[in-house]
Design a protein around this nucleic acid. Sequence first.
DNA 1: GTAGTGTTACTACGTCCCGTAGTTTCAAGC
DNA 2: GCTTGAAACTACGGGACGTAGTAACACTAC
Lengths: 144, 144
Amino acid sequence: MARPPLSPRSPSSPRSPRMGDLERVVMEHLWESMAQDEAEGGATVRDVHAKFAGEREIAYTTVMTVLDRLSRKDLVTRVRDGRAWRYRPSDTREALTAATMRNTLDEIDVTNRRLALLHFLDGASSAELADLKAALAEIEARGS
Amino acid sequence: MARPPLSPRSPSSPRSPRMGDLERVVMEHLWESMAQDEAEGGATVRDVHAKFAGEREIAYTTVMTVLDRLSRKDLVTRVRDGRAWRYRPSDTREALTAATMRNTLDEIDVTNRRLALLHFLDGASSAELADLKAALAEIEARGS
DNA sequence: GTAGTGTTACTACGTCCCGTAGTTTCAAGC
DNA sequence: GCTTGAAACTACGGGACGTAGTAACACTAC
């Protein structure tokens, strides 16, 4: 599977608001939907609700409410499709993860940033370090 | 100022629970206190309350409550000092930041981790990249 | 030993977020 | 027009947090 190109220089970096548990699960389902049906313009409430079948009992309207709240937070975007809406995540999972990490890092004073990064790397597995180095190399290869 | 050595391999990595705004400010004050009075075994409620003077009107008991909640979350540790308690952050700011970043990263699937890191680096300033590379070099120099 | 004073411990309350879902409205098809 | 699928609106209980008052308790100074 080809890696989607990173958008050309900071695509107005995604927000990363707090998310409740159910909200997170719904996002999960949405991301999954996106990966599966590339064609569709997003998942309907019905689609998302269906994904809960057998996994968790949840009312249709609950899914609606959650999706509504997620869209208020700009975590999902919706477009009309007939009389229904189609919901899609505003950002990829990876972009959101990265944004959250960035927000966390930006909270501390710049002078201590390196120490924080040191701690971060200290807890990293070697596989993670490898991933990081690869990513770093790729960024540098792209030049400025 | 000498950098404190990173604890010898994952010191039972710090939790990173959600924190309210006031809770964060109090943590901030505590960290600041630690940096200033190295000698003291922590800050008392009175100390922390004093730090709010001129910055924000807040009741003494409010500070107590907040510190109590923070200690329930294990974000701060307290020890008796006469009839008062002395509070100190359970972890350094940098360690907590790192732990939070790690938790965020660990939420996503390993297979997409590299992409997330790529996004993360994509939003980094060159100063940040430099810090990261320095930290990376240091980790590697330490060997396993 | 009695009255103050510093500290903690206990209790409380309003607000906001979130999980959860019922009820109402609206549009379209039959 | 009546049914039906979908959204819109409304609601409510629980938990976290900001906020702080009051009670209890121990030491200090008379």
